[in-house]
Amino acid sequence: MIMHPGIKLRHLRVFLDIAARGSLTAAARAQGITQPALSRTLAELEALLQVPLFRRERRRLVLTDAGTLLRTHAAAALQMLESGVAALHPVAGTDRLRVGILPTAATRLFPRVALRFREMHPHVTLSVETGPHPHLIRLLREGGIDLMIGRMPAAADMAGLRFDHLYEDQIALVSRAGHPFWGQPVRDVLSACPVILPPQDALIRRAVDDYLQARNLAGLHPAFETAALAVGRGILAASDALWFISQGVVGDELDQGALIQWPTDAGFLTGAVGLTRRQVGPENAMLDVLTRLATDGARTYAGSRAS
């Protein structure tokens, strides 16, 4: 079957954005259009293809089998097209790598890697994009970034991508040093004090929710939701709140004694951290160098935490 001539790039971009975010509202905001307009575009694409691409599960849109197949090929096709357009307009006299950094790698691992890369290749600019996982995944698929460093994406997000494992990072429960309830049972403290949870779309949120449910705290209402170090650190310093956050985000604060880590006794509060790249893309020697440095840096970082 030949592709219907009515299918346009806007159809595919809308489709990929909805697939990445699982929400019409979030995708419409990212596209800068109204939700009704985005819904019409999706309906047009499904009509042209004559197959449903999504099904609704609770409050999320989930890809059908046909949608999963289309995303794999549409993402690869758009990436190749973006690469071709970029090759027509090279930037003279400069090189640039665009890297997306999730919070777990932003404060300790990546700064060390970035400085080492700068020593080796001072003519290359590292353009760093931060933000939540859905935002960076979308940029990676669309060619807005060349590499993402952080926690392993969910299986549903891995079509057209590859993940290289670096190390395991624990989800820590932390508070300010000198917390008045230190030493008391964690379940009681969580029930009595304000709690900061990762955002709903954070990769670690599900593991935290599972932890709370296993301790009959599924109904706990968080006071705040954030994965931002500056925000979380500021709230902890001025209150008796506790924060579930990737250990890599608050490693320096723990080492310096500004924050303390509470025992959780939960082996599943951990997850893989690594490099996520597109499976199909142009050769990039500088990106390969950065990947090797990140691998070496992660080995040193993981060793220092174990010692």
Rank of each mutant, 00 (worst) to 15 (best):
T34S: 15
L69M: 12
M80I: 07
A28C: 11
R40T: 08
A20D: 14
F54I: 05
R58F: 12
A27R: 02
G22M: 11
G67K: 05
R40H: 13
L45G: 01
E44M: 09
D95I: 00
V91D: 11
L69Q: 15
R96Y: 07
T25S: 14
A30N: 05
L53Q: 02
A26E: 09
L88A: 12
L42F: 05
L102Y: 05
M80F: 01
L63W: 05
Q31H: 10
A20E: 13
E44A: 10
L42V: 04
L88C: 12
P36R: 08
L49W: 14
R98F: 09
G22H: 10
L70E: 01
F54E: 02
V51P: 00
T107W: 12
E46P: 00
A76S: 14
A47F: 12
E44G: 05
P90Y: 07
I33F: 04
G93E: 15
Q31N: 10
L69K: 13
H89N: 10
I101H: 04
H73G: 03
I101L: 15
T104D: 12
P90V: 04
Q50D: 15
S39Y: 09
A77W: 08
H73Q: 14
A37L: 13
A86G: 00
T72L: 14
V91I: 13
R71W: 06
R21M: 08
M80Q: 15
L78I: 09
Q31T: 04
A20Q: 13
R96Q: 15
S23T: 04
R59H: 12
A106E: 09
L63M: 12
L97P: 00
A30D: 07
V85G: 05
L63E: 05
E44S: 13
Q35V: 14
R96I: 14
T107S: 11
F54A: 02
V62Q: 07
A105W: 05
P36D: 12
D95P: 00
L24C: 07
L102N: 00
L61S: 02
R96W: 08
R58Q: 15
T25D: 13
A19Y: 01
L24W: 15
L45M: 04
L102Q: 13
R29N: 11
L48A: 08
V51N: 00
A86V: 00
A76P: 00
A28G: 09
R21Q: 12
L70F: 10
A74R: 01
A30V: 07
R98M: 07
A30G: 08
A76R: 13
P52W: 13
A76W: 03
S39L: 13
R60Y: 09
E46Y: 04
V51T: 09
A105R: 06
Q79R: 15
E57M: 01
T41G: 09
R108E: 15
I33C: 15
P90M: 03
R71I: 01
A77F: 11
I33T: 11
E57N: 00
A106L: 10
T72V: 07
R29I: 09
A30C: 07
H89E: 10
G67Y: 07
A77Q: 12
T107L: 12
S23E: 03
V62P: 01
T41V: 12
R60Q: 14
H89A: 11
A74Y: 02
R71L: 10
A30I: 03
S39H: 14
